[in-house]
Design a protein around this nucleic acid. Structure first.
Lengths: 214, 214
DNA sequence: GCCGACATGTAAATTGTTACATGATTAG
DNA sequence: CTAATCATGTAACAATTTACATGTCGGC
C-alpha cells in the first residue's frame, strides 16, 4: 500500500528517527496519510531489510536509543517508480454519512450535536491549514514545480475542509431550520435503490466511469 | 467498526440476501461505506450469531441456495444506539495527495495524466449522483425528516465530488498553465514542518470548489 | 536512586483484500 | 448435458488498531 511510500517521502524531506517520523505524521505528512508509531516502526524495519533505507551510523544501536534513518538510492528509485504508477480513487468510507443514513433508517436520534461537533473540528483543521498556507506560500513568490506541487496538495486539504464545513453548515440548517414532517412519508427516495449498473457477482465495482467527456 | 451498521441499515431498508446486499453496496449504501461480498458474508454470519439478524425461513438452506436476512429487534436497537454514538472524523488517507507530495520530494514524474484520469472518474461519479438527486429529490416536494436525512447524505456525496473536480481542474491549470521554474528552490515550504499544537476554530470562507448546493 | 520524558519495540485482535472453491438454476 | 450465471462461502494474507513491554537519559 502507500505507507512505505509516505515514509520514504518523509525521510527524503528530512532523515529522521521513528519517533520524529511519528510526530511529523501527526501534523505534516500525516495530514494526507495518517499513521501510528507502531506501524511506522514496523515499516521502517521492512524498508531497512529491503535496502530502501538505512540507519545512520551511531555508537550503540540498543533498544531505547535513538536511531535515525536516511533514504538509499534504491528507496528513491522505488518512490519515483511509485509516483508514476496509477491508482483509482478509494471508494468513500465515511462513518458520519453512514450514521446519517442509518438515522434515516431507524428514525429518531438527535444527530445534530454530533454534526456541530464535527463542524468545530473541521473549522479548526481548516484554520490550521490556512495558517500554514499564509506562512509557507506568500502570494507573489516565484515558485518551482516542487513548491507548486506542495501548494496544490495543501490546497487540497483546505478545500476538503471547506467542503466539510460548508456541507455541515448547510446540513444543520436543513435539519434544524424547518420542522420535521411526520414519519413514514415518501417512498422511492434515495436509499431505496439506485438504477442498476452492470454488476458482476464478485466484489464491488466502481460505478462506471470514463464515459463522461464533459 | 461500521460495517455491521452499514449492513443493518441496508437490511432495515429492505431485507436481502448476501448477493443482493453486495449489489446494493456497489451503488447505494456503498457510496458511503464500500465493501466486498466476502466481508459481507462474514459479517452476516457474525450478525446472525449475535442475534441481530435472522435468515428468513426457507425450504433447505444449503450452500448455493439463496438466503434472505431480516433485522431483529436487537439489531435495530444496536443500530439506534450506534446512531447516537460519537466518533471523530477519520484522518485523511488519500493516495493521490500523497503521490503529489512524493512527486515534490523526488522531483520529476508526469503526474498530470493521472490527474486527468481522476478528474474523469470524479466527473462521472458526480453526474451519477446528480441523476439520482434529480430522480429522487424533486425540488418542491414536502419531505419528512427521513427524506431530509437521505437528501443531505446525497448532497454530501455531490459536494465531495464537486470538491474533487474543482480541485483537480485547478491543480491541472496550476501545473500545466505556467512553465516550471528550475528545481532546488525555496526552502521552508509546506513539507518542511508545520507549527506544533492545536489550532483554534475560525470562521469559514468559501474558496472555490465544493460550491454548488450549499 | 528515582521519576518523567524520550525512544523503540512486541503481541493480539480486528478489519480489509485477493484468490479460490463449491453448489444451484436455467438457457440452449 | 453443458455452459453461463446466480449464489454462498473458505483460506490466506495484508493492513490497521489497541494494548502493552522495555530500555535510555537528564534533572533533582
Amino acid at each position: 500500500m502507500s505507507l512505505p511510500h509516505a515514509i520514504l517521502t518523509a525521510l527524503l524531506e528530512k532523515p529522521s528517527s521513528g519517533l520524529e517520523l511519528t510526530r511529523r505524521f501527526d501534523r505534516s505528512i500525516g495530514y494526507f496519510w495518517s499513521s501510528t508509531h507502531q506501524q511506522i516502526y514496523r515499516e521502517l524495519g521492512k524498508l531497512e531489510q529491503a535496502g530502501h533505507i538505512r540507519a545512520l551510523p551511531s555508537p550503540q544501536p540498543t533498544r531505547g536509543q535513538k536511531k535515525e534513518y536516511e533514504v538509499l538510492p534504491a528507496g528513491r528509485a522505488e518512490l519515483a517508480d511509485w509516483v508514476g504508477r496509477s491508482e483509482d480513487p478509494r471508494p468513500v468510507r465515511d462513518p458520519l454519512l453512514l450514521r446519517l443514513r442509518a438515522a434515516a433508517a431507524v428514525g429518531g436520534g438527535d444527530v445534530e450535536a454530533e454534526l456541530v461537533r464535527h463542524l468545530e473540528l473541521h473549522r479548526a483543521q481548516l484554520a490550521d491549514y490556512r495558517e500554514i498556507e499564509r506562512r509557507d506560500f506568500p502570494p507573489e513568490r516565484r515558485i518551482s514545480r516542487q513548491d507548486r506541487l506542495r501548494h496544490v496538495v495543501l490546497r487540497g486539504g483546505i478545500e476538503l475542509e471547506s467542503f466539510w464545513t460548508g456541507w455541515l453548515t448547510a446540513t444543520l440548517a436543513e435539519l434544524t431550520g424547518a420542522g420535521a414532517a411526520g414519519p413514514g412519508a415518501a417512498e422511492g427516495a434515495f436509499g431505496h435503490e439506485a438504477p442498476d449498473g452492470p454488476a458482476g457477482a464478485s466484489g464491488r465495482t466502481r460505478p462506471d466511469a470514463a464515459s463522461d467527456g464533459a
